Structures are given as C-alpha cells and as structure tokens.
Simulated scan of single mutants.
Amino acid sequence: MAESKNGEHGQKIAYEKIAEMGSGLVIAKVSADSIREQDINARIMKNEMQRQLTDNIKKRGQLESLPFCALTHDGERVEIISGHHRIRSGKDAGLKDFFVILDVSGLNRSNIVAKQIAHNAISGFDDQSMLKELAKLMDDVDDMIESYAGKEILEVPDSEIDKLLSPTLTFDWKNIVFAFLPHQIEDVNALVEAIQKFAPDYVGVADVEAYKPFMEALAKYQEFANVKNVGAAIHAMTKTTLQQIDDSGYNDTEEWVQLTSIFGGSAIPKEKAERIKEAVEKMVEDGLVPKKRRWQALEVLADCYMAGE
C-alpha cells in the first residue's frame, strides 16, 4: 500500500507500507532520495569501517538490519533517527530503496532528537571474551574481513591481520594530482578546492587539449619499453627526460631553444644519423665540443659553413 504526503516545495514524498507494527510504527519501503540525514549526529564511524560497511552491503545487495526513521509531524520529510551510517553506505553501494521501520505518528523536532539520543546511547556493549570465542568459529578470510572484528578479537598475528584488513605499502610514496583542464581560472580554483582534502604533495594543471596526446605518448612508451605499470612508465619517461637535459648541459643561466624549432623535427633517417654521430664523436675526442654539450657540434659546423670553410 503506497502512501504519500506533500513535501517541501510541493513535491511528493512517498513510502510503501509493507506491514503494520502498531503504535504508529510501520515497516516501509522508502526511496533513497526521500530519506534525509539529521544535521547533527553524535554517532561517528571511522572511514575504513564505513568503507567495509559499504562493501558488505554491495555483497549482500541490501541492508541486513532495518534503520529507524520518522515521518515528521508536518509530513514533509522522512528523517533518519538511527541508521545514518547504514543508509549512507547503502547509497554509496547503489541502493535506490530502503526498507525501514518508519514512525508515522507525527513526531516533532524535540521527539526526534530524544529518540536519536536514546538509540545512540542505549546500545549496550560487547563482552570481549565472548567475542573472541565467536571469532574462533570463523574459518574464512572474507568472513573475518566482513566482521571488522579487529586483530585483538581475531587473535591473528599483527603482520597477518594487517595484510587482511588494511594492506600497507612498505616503501615511501608521494600523493600527486595532475589534471587536464580548460584554461579557465574558475576550473583551476574548483580543482584546488576539490582536492584539498586529499592533501596531495603536488598538484599540476595542464591544458585539456594535452590530455589525449599525453595518454597516447604514455601508452606508446609502455609498449616501447615493455612496461605494464603506469607508474613505472612515467618514472622511466621522467628518467629519460632528465637524462636528455643532463646530456645537453642545460643550466638556467642561459635562454634555451628547442632544436625542433630550427629543424622542424627531432628525427632523421638512421643512415644519416650514423654518419652525424660518427662526426660528433670525433669532435668530442678531438676536444672541439664537450661530452655533455654535444649539440655544440652544430655550432662548429655552422661557424665553418658561414666562414666558407
């Protein structure tokens, strides 16, 4: 049986009554869009626990316990009293509807807050020794992870439980964010604001037109160097670039120009390259050009040509 009330801005908030419980309580099916969290909720949950809850719901495809909600006295909202984290994880898991215990008696704000505090406070506590006995009955790693019991309950060595519940990296790493955006200041500001919570060590922004060529270059380099890992490919490309800069003898006291702006390209036929390489190596051996600035061979040739030699 579907019932509805006029909501804020005239929209309909509908719920489907599944069963009557009496005393103003029903079991109802409510759409995710119709459920509103409280602005203040004293019960907190660690991020990793919230993620585990989301994974559990994804696996099941539904909540395994019913949240307690209320239809406000004006009939405009369905508000969560108990079950904020379950519903939040359910939404993250892609659930479109929730089965809830719904109080339709018309609670006011004071009534809702009182019940919210009561549900958070009257939750009992776990007997740790009994939890350990229960944990011994689990013989599947996935069940251990789903239980989120913790290593002190599961009595698994720290090194093992860390691998199961919270995989860690044994090397130093840096968090880098690099995005390709149109050159508009509002986009850049929005990007910086959006990623501040991740506290990256470096933030880079490039023209959106450079995204496709960059990805094509990365894919080709992975194939060329037979590197499957993207991070390893970027590392190898970076080393190659730094080596080229070092070989050129670059320093920031002079203004530099890319050779492609002179020759129109950076590649020549192999047989021509071998001949030029041989000449450059001889210039290095004769001391005409330094090993780290081989491009000066072009300068020598230019001077000779311009002098008519």
Rank of each mutant, 00 (worst) to 15 (best):
W295M: 05
E152W: 08
V30K: 12
V208S: 14
S89R: 01
E146S: 05
F125S: 14
N189T: 10
V203E: 04
M283T: 08
L134Q: 07
S266R: 11
Q196F: 10
K292E: 08
D55R: 13
D162S: 02
L154E: 04
V205S: 10
R43S: 01
K17I: 12
M237F: 06
V78W: 13
P213E: 02
L164M: 13
E285Q: 13
V203S: 09
D39S: 12
G61Q: 08
I18E: 06
K151I: 00
W173D: 12
G90R: 02
D127Q: 00
L66P: 07
K239V: 13
A114E: 15
A179I: 09
G287Q: 07
N175R: 14
G204K: 07
D139A: 11
E271T: 10
Q50F: 14
M138W: 00
Q184I: 13
I57S: 00
T170G: 14
L218I: 13
K29Q: 10
A2C: 04
D39F: 09
K17M: 03
S166K: 15
G287E: 01
I35T: 06
H119C: 14
D187C: 14
V113K: 11
R77E: 12
S65H: 15
K115M: 15
V192G: 00
D207Q: 04
R86C: 11
V205A: 10
N41G: 03
K151V: 01
K282F: 03
E16I: 04
F68M: 02
P200V: 06
V203F: 01
L154V: 03
D172L: 10
L298C: 14
V188G: 11
L102V: 00
G249N: 04
I35W: 06
N189V: 08
I245K: 01
Y211F: 14
T72E: 00
L95K: 03
F125R: 13
I40P: 03
L165V: 04
L137T: 08
E76C: 10
S248P: 03
D172Q: 11
S4C: 11
Q244T: 09
V227S: 05
D127H: 08
E223S: 15
S261T: 13
D252N: 15
R60D: 05
I161V: 05
K292C: 04
M306G: 11
F171M: 04
V30Y: 09
N175Y: 14
E152S: 11
E281T: 12
V26K: 10
L53F: 07
Y15L: 08
P182V: 04
T253Y: 02
P67L: 03
I145H: 00
I262Y: 08
G22K: 09
T170N: 15
I44N: 15
L218T: 01
I122Y: 07
M45I: 14
A114T: 09
Q38F: 06
A217H: 13
V230A: 04
L25Y: 14
L95R: 02
E281N: 13
P213N: 00
L191G: 05
F198C: 02
F171I: 10
E223F: 04
S166V: 05
R86T: 03
P67D: 00
E309C: 12
L181F: 00
S248M: 06
R77K: 13
G124Q: 05
G90W: 09
K17W: 01
